[in-house]
Nucleic acid binder design. Structure first.
Lengths: 123, 123, 123, 123
DNA sequence: GTGGTCTAGACCACA
DNA sequence: GTGGTCTAGACCACG
């Protein structure tokens, strides 16, 4: 995993975990990698991962048991919420950004379609 | 202007200026506010604005005349490029993000249309 | 400040701050001691205090500004809530504990009164 | 049994046993569950219960006979003391806590009565 | 081995 | 000087 320079690593990992939940890669109640294993894999200090897990736990996204491990939430509802929030955020950000640039709703959809078609020709 | 916590303010201001160029609010060869004026307006330290202007100048987006002030580039081509790069970046990021979440091109457009319609009903 | 052995220091400090808010010692929008000053005063590492402040910030009890300092919440409502929650918690815990020990409501009040009188005689 | 996160489980179980003695649920000289039975019942590791029993024995609250089991103390005086200490601790803690929050003796009793009455209305 | 806490010391961004 | 992040390394509680 490559980290951006201008954002704390632990926040990037939090987002990374939330993304994996949103895409379904991490499933309900699944065991996460141990703090130290993930630290080694991502080449960061174990404290950084511990902080990450604690923030995720505070938000109810994972739960940890001492001496056992850390696990994705058991709440299917929470998992759906993470996914839906993410999608909503992406779409509303997109709409907002293009509007600021002067795009009408119609033009926005047209440009998106054009982009998607263009990719086929280019790729 | 409200700044995010986890990103250097000067980078946010750089983006802010580039956005104003992309939207046409800042025009070709227009004089920018002085470092101290902008600092006061954005409620940040003047050093932060100075840093911002240096970066923008390095990228050829603005240029400075000693004792006179800073100005938006005179190159119409640069201005177009800033705008197009921005749009391309926004669209490709959007497409990429939704694909990661498992969205097909078709569903992506559908959801976007749904979102735009939903706004009308809600707003 | 003396710390108990069987509870993380940062949680004890969180409670310590909340207590000071509840008693009115810390007032609305008041500046807290800096992370490093409090660390020195309490003879703990600055990271421990930083963690404390971050948790308090996540709960909306204080807010921090980089390069400026940390401050008690500006919300009078939040301050009242902290105080009332604390009182409610103390009373309900007391009632519950004595009931478990077989005390009726009447006996509970009698014992409390007896205790308060006894103190006068002893003190 | 639900355990708090921020306190060693064995201390919570010690308190749990002392509470059962204080309430009379565990009687003088009564045989306790075996380490493994209690471990299974409380869903904790048997080492944790073993540790618990060792501490209780050290304090004279229980005693063990090799190959037979563990038993509640035979001293009626010890049992009374556990109960009285507990009650005294609860009351004095309560009084102290509310005083710190600025409550007079009179107000303390009033609030307690109010709380007890309020419960009836709410429950 | 698992998560959690703490220290010491470094560096960064911001004012 | 202020808060925030990160590392390295230690120790603890629990299973």
């Amino acid at each position: 995993m490559k980290f951006k320079d201008n954002m704390p690593i632990y926040l990037q990992i939090i987002d990374h975990v939330k993304l994996k939940i949103a895409t379904g890669e991490y499933k309900r109640a699944e065991k996460l990698e141990s703090v130290r294993d993930m630290a080694q894999k991502l080449r960061v200090n174990h404290n950084t991962i511990a902080k990450t897990y604690q923030f995720l736990e505070k938000d109810g996204i994972i739960f940890s048991k001492k001496g056992v491990g850390s696990f994705i939430t058991e709440s299917e509802e929470m998992i759906s919420r993470i996914r839906e929030e993410r999608i909503f955020f992406k779409i509303s950000t997109f709409v907002n950004d293009l509007r600021v640039l002067g795009y009408s709703d119609k033009k926005m959809i047209e440009e998106l379609e054009k982009f998607l078609k263009g990719e086929i020709q280019n790729g």
